[in-house]
Nucleic acid binder design. Structure first.
Lengths: 195, 195
DNA sequence: CGAGTAGTTGAGGTTGCTCAAGATATGTGG
DNA sequence: CCACATATCTTGAGCAACCTCAACTACTCG
């Protein structure tokens, strides 16, 4: 199943029918309040599962949209549930995957709990770096899948502040920043900034 | 199993062995960074499950402490897992409970994503009110189980700001505040503040 | 009743937001 | 492949919200 850039996988309030597993690319999930502004953005990379929020209330509580061309694997939930009941090991893995999701949400909460904008953004970058490493990609050189606006939304900052922090990091020699291309040049220094 | 005020249920890095279900009282979970300051606080009321974060990594990623005298039900995970594999319906409920946990985390993230301190605190209070209502308690008159410090930690604010916002809400006639005793006197007005 | 914890209030400083303008990147139709 | 339109990003100046530090008051619990 292929998603083009800006294409939605599902929207808030859609009926829950399937889970999705990202194979390549990147998506963001976001929640809008009645006024229509985006709150609470988060990102999903390959190997991560989406749609777990719908299990409880039978409809999705967030919208998910592709940030670039993305391949996802659809897993119809009814069938999956049946399969799980026959395969205890599969069920066990699924439980762990849900738990991982909870831990990951907690980690994002920790990012946002940092004191200054610099701390938040640095923690965000380190988190991304670790997730790229887990995918056997470079942890020091990568291209951001998301816009400054998305990052700002995720951290509760403004685009301008995010932009300024990136320039500040570059001036301090912590990373090379050219648009969305990032190279971490001083990981120790960066880790020190993180908190 | 009874917990006294300030008693820990488990601490970050403890080995994961059981899930816990709150029967009465209230606990908070918190994560500390290497420097020892609390980041990312959240609260659990009766009917809510704790410890789901440990499933994935086999050890807890947060600490949990009682805010007042609290009764919890311990559920040894190994036995529970066996029981689930025999009882598909129990398994189904468990999946939904985990999903609910994910949704609840998302809701907390939305609180923190609000623009101003007043918005955040009001959203926090409305969230609490809804959770009390679900427990068949009054949604308009209740006693806060947590200190101002805990609230501040949860929202990423300072104690002083939380205190000032409470006085502001009282001055605007939105609620009566006397220490931890709260009465919502103008729910419409409050909802308008929320975003 | 007294010690410690929790909460309130005030004054002043800093961070990050708002508004605005310009620069760069991305995408589209000819 | 280029030219134009649009989206994204950067930088600056001024301002508001929130934090810090400090003093004081009100609970709570032994």
């Amino acid at each position: 199943m292929k998603l083009k850039k800006r294409q939605h996988l599902f929207r808030q309030e859609d009926k829950f029918e399937s889970l999705y597993f990202i194979r390549s690319g990147c998506v963001k999930s976001y929640v809008t309040n009645p006024d229509g502004d985006e709150l609470a953005v988060s990102f999903f990379l390959p190997g991560e599962m989406i749609g777990l929020d719908g299990l409880y209330s039978k409809h999705h509580t967030s919208s998910v949209v592709a940030l670039g061309d993305t391949y996802v694997c659809e897993i119809p939930y009814a069938a999956f549930e049946r399969l799980c009941s026959e395969q205890p090991l599969l069920q066990k893995h699924f439980n762990e995957l849900m738990s991982r999701q909870i831990v990951q949400e907690q980690e994002m909460t920790m990012l946002r709990g940092q004191k200054t904008a610099a701390n938040q953004l640095m923690a965000f970058m380190m988190n991304l770096s670790e997730r790229f490493e887990r995918l056997n990609l470079s942890a020091v050189t990568f291209r951001l899948p998301m816009t400054r606006k998305d990052i700002a939304g995720c951290l509760g900052l403004t685009i301008e502040t995010v932009s300024r922090m990136f320039t500040a990091f570059q001036d301090k020699g912590l990373m090379e920043v050219s648009g969305r291309d990032i190279t971490l040049t001083n990981v120790e220094g960066a880790t020190a900034i993180r908190h």
